[in-house]
Write a protein that binds this DNA or RNA. Sequence first.
DNA 1: CACCAGGCAGTGC
DNA 2: GCACTGCATGGT
Length: 301
Amino acid sequence: MSVTLPLPCFDPFVILESGQCFRMNAMDAQTVETIALGRCLRIHPLGAGRFTFDCDPDTLDSVWRPYFDLDTDYAAVCAAAPKADAPLQEAIACMGGLRILRQDPWETLCGFILSQRRHIRAIRANMEALSKAYGEPIEGCTRNAFPTAERLAAQDEAALRALGLGYRAPYVLDAARRVASGRLNLEAIAALPEEQLFAELRTVAGVGVKVADCVMLFGYQRLTRAPVDVWIHRVIAESYGGESPFAGYGAYAGIYQQYLFMHRRKLGNSANPQTAGKVERTPEIPNECSKKTAPAPKRKP
DNA sequence: CACCAGGCAGTGC
DNA sequence: GCACTGCATGGT
C-alpha cells in the first residue's frame, strides 16, 4: 500500500546527506529507504514536489508525518531568517528541502556518541553494524531495526570494539546500561527544561557539549540548540569573522545551523583545511553553491 | 600514504 | 577557568 501527496520544502535526498540521521539511503534515483522507529519506509519522488510513501495512510499520519516534521511550515522558517545574513541566506537557498527530523532519542544518542572524530560515512557503517549484529529483523526488509538499550547493555566492550566502534565502545556501553537500568530515562527527560535536559544527557560517558546539543536538536526537537562542530567552526571563522551568529538566531537557531553545516560541508574540505579550531579573521568568501570553487587564497604563514 | 573526521576526557597550569 | 594531548578506525 502507498500514499502519494505533494510536499513543499521536502527533499529526502537532501535529508539523507544532512548528517542528522545515519540509516537513510538512496537505493536508486527513484527510491530512498530509511530504517527508523523500528520500521522500514521507502519514498519515491515523482517530481514537481510530489512523493509516494510506501505505507498506508494511517501509518503516514501517525508515524512518518511527525518523524519528518511535515506539519511545520519550513517556508515560513526560512523566510524568518535574518535578511542581512548573507551566508545564511546563501545556505538556505542551496539546501532547500532540508528538515530537522524527530528521531528516536536512544538511536540519536548512540549515533552522536559514535560521531566523534568520524566521517559521516563511518558513523553510518557503525550504526549499520550495530543493527545487523543486535537489532531485530523488520518484516519485508533486509535491514534490522536499531538495537534496544537492553540488548546493547548485555554486550561487552570487546564485542562492540569488534564492530569497529574503537574507543567509543565503552561510551555506547555506558549509555546502554544507564538507559537499560533506568538511571537515565530518555522518555521522562523529554519534559525537562532545556538546561536540565542538557545536564542529564551530559551524565553519559562520551557525551560532551556538542553531542548533547545534537541529541537535543535531532532527538528532542529542541530547535534552539545549535551544535558547533569542525564545519560550523569553519563557517564562523570564514564567513562571520570569528563571531558566532547563533545567539541572534532565536527559536530556529538549530535549523539555521543545519543549513550552514550542510552547505559548508558540500563546499568541501579543500576550501580551508587549516582554520578548524582557530578563530581568525579571513577575507570574504564568495559562496556560490552552483560552482564549487575554492575561496580566495588565505594569508601566508 | 599522510591527513582528517558532526569530540571528549584527562591532565596541567 | 583555558590549553594541550591521546584516542581507534576508515575515507579521501
